[in-house]
Amino acid sequence: MITAYCSDCKPVEIGDLSQGSLRDDVMWIDMIEPSREEELFVERTLGVEVPTRDDLKDIEPSARLYMENDAVFMTASLVWKVETDAPTLTDVAFILAGKRMITIRYAQPKSFSLFIAALHRVPQQWRSGAALLAKLFETVIDRTAEILELSVARIDILSTHVFGDRARKVRKPSNYLEEKLRDIAGHHRLVSKVRDSLASLSRLMTFFYTVPAVQQDRDTKELCKTVSRDIQSLNEHASFIAGNITFLLDASLGLINIEQNSIIKIFSIASVVFLPPTLVASIYGMNFEFMPELHFAQGYPYSLGLMVLSAVIPFFFFRWKGWL
């Protein structure tokens, strides 16, 4: 699907791809999962080679950032499916061909819908290919910051569930912490994807800053500097969040070990408490002929009392030591 946006920020229909052409005031061509016919139309109309889905997956820097025939080709990885349990990265191509901007994507990151919704608020002097592309990168970074803030809020809630419930001594299922470990793994996956995305955007902005169309426009140049600084700040923020996730993971594993040790301690103390009564019962259960206690009239209650006493003494000793 191809959507073209003119200088008045309104989408226009292209019509017949085999014979159609672009209006002179078209400033942005947004290609979403383009067909081969749509790719050929853009290539014929603008004289640029449109990268395919396989081309976008190439991780070599020389294949993701390059200039060819006065056109600038850039590819970045953006975070997608943030609201789901399986966030992932999607590769998006950005092409600067003369005064026009071209985007090629096989997913729909929210940053694009946010940019389209705010497109009418872009000042007239920013409605050129390079300036508009810089504005799009700014929206992408703003969305990335929003994702990190969302991750921080979720981690705070998760931390409350892990530590706050224990402070209030709320009874939880035995596998409660194990389930929280899966939640922690999900947050770690999201932050890792954000850091990978920021790394690709950082390389892209370094390359984009050197493009002649950017260097010739002071406002666009300053915006690129601002976006680069924002990327650096978000990288540091993402590292801080990753550290908090690591702490939460270590703390959860520690709490699981404490619970397991408590269970083992109960069994150990129980075995020690009942060991002396078992010894008494074993002694008087022997079948020797000469055992003086067997002829006592009170031998049976005597042995029962001895077993109870041998169990009570270790119990109170453990209580006195603070082991219970």
Rank of each mutant, 00 (worst) to 15 (best):
L119D: 09
T139H: 13
A134S: 10
F207K: 06
A199C: 06
A185I: 13
T160A: 12
I157S: 14
T144S: 09
S128L: 04
A153H: 10
R189P: 02
F207G: 01
D165H: 08
L181Q: 09
S200R: 00
L201A: 01
D196A: 13
A134N: 02
S197F: 00
K169T: 01
V140I: 15
G186M: 12
A117D: 12
S200H: 03
S111M: 12
P123W: 01
V194E: 09
N175F: 07
I155G: 04
I147G: 01
L119T: 04
G186L: 07
L119W: 04
L150E: 12
F208L: 02
A145N: 06
V170W: 02
G129Y: 01
A118Q: 15
F208E: 00
G164T: 01
T139M: 11
V194Q: 12
R143Y: 08
S202L: 04
A199F: 09
A118P: 06
S128M: 01
G164E: 12
K180H: 09
K169Q: 12
T206V: 07
P173V: 06
R166S: 09
A118W: 05
Y176T: 04
R189L: 08
V170S: 03
R171K: 14
Y176E: 11
D165Y: 05
T206N: 14
R166T: 06
N175T: 08
S202I: 00
D196V: 14
I157K: 14
A118L: 07
P123K: 00
